[in-house]
Simulated scan of single mutants.
Amino acid sequence: MNKRSMRAFAFGIFLTASVIGAGYYDQGGQQNSMTVDAAKSQLEKAGYVILSESEFNHLKGKINIEEKEHPSPTNSVQETTKR
């Protein structure tokens, strides 16, 4: 390769990287354009249930209480094998 073709090759790589970089940064601002309410609405339409953190912790506490009152047979087997 002579000097001229090497420069043309380097310029091509530089131009390609610039175009890809511009496209990458241009799309970055559009990804976070969804609001919280819009996200909740979209998830509910898809069949998901949305809980606040306090509701989740309340249900988690109920499950822990029920597991302590009525342990399942698989839990007791796992506890004996851990010893």
Rank of each mutant, 00 (worst) to 15 (best):
I20S: 06
Q42E: 10
Q78M: 14
R7M: 12
I13K: 03
E55N: 07
F9A: 14
Y25V: 14
K68W: 04
E69A: 11
H70E: 03
D26Y: 14
Q30W: 08
K82R: 14
F14D: 03
G21Y: 12
K82C: 11
Q42C: 05
I20C: 03
E66L: 15
G47F: 10
S18P: 01
K68R: 15
Y24S: 08
N57Y: 01
V36E: 12
R7F: 06
S72H: 04
T74H: 04
R7G: 01
E69L: 14
G21V: 01
K40Y: 12
M34D: 05
L43N: 06
Q31V: 12
T74C: 04
T16Q: 02
I20G: 06
A10V: 08
N64M: 08
G23C: 08
Q42V: 10
S33R: 12
Q31F: 13
Y25N: 09
A10K: 07
A8I: 10
R4N: 05
L59N: 11
R83L: 13
Q78E: 08
Q42N: 09
E79M: 08
G12C: 11
Y24P: 00
Q27R: 13
H58D: 13
I63N: 05
A8P: 00
D26M: 14
L43F: 15
M1V: 11
D26K: 07
T35E: 01
I63S: 04
L15E: 01
A10F: 10
N75M: 10
K62R: 15
Q30T: 12
E66Q: 07
T74S: 12
L15D: 02
G12P: 06
I13F: 11
F11H: 04
Q27A: 08
T74W: 13
G12E: 00
I63A: 14
A17M: 14
P73Y: 02
K68L: 09
G29P: 05
K82D: 13
K45C: 06
E67Y: 08
R4G: 03
G28V: 06
D37K: 12
K60W: 06
F56S: 02
A39G: 10
T74E: 15
E67F: 03
L43Y: 09
I20K: 00
A39M: 15
V19C: 03
Q27D: 08
L43R: 11
A38M: 12
A38I: 04
M1N: 09
A8M: 09
T81A: 15
T81L: 15
L43A: 14
H70N: 15
N57E: 15
F9G: 06
E44Y: 03
S54H: 06
E66H: 08
N2L: 04
A10P: 00
Q30V: 03
S52M: 02
E69H: 01
T74P: 03
F9T: 09
G61F: 00
G61E: 10
K40I: 15
G12R: 03
T74L: 14
A8Y: 00
Q30L: 09
Y48E: 04
G29S: 07
K62T: 13
A39L: 15
F11L: 13
A39C: 09
L51P: 00
N32W: 11
K62I: 12
K45F: 02
Q27M: 11
N64H: 01
S54V: 11
I63L: 14
Q27W: 04
K68T: 02
G61V: 01
A8R: 06
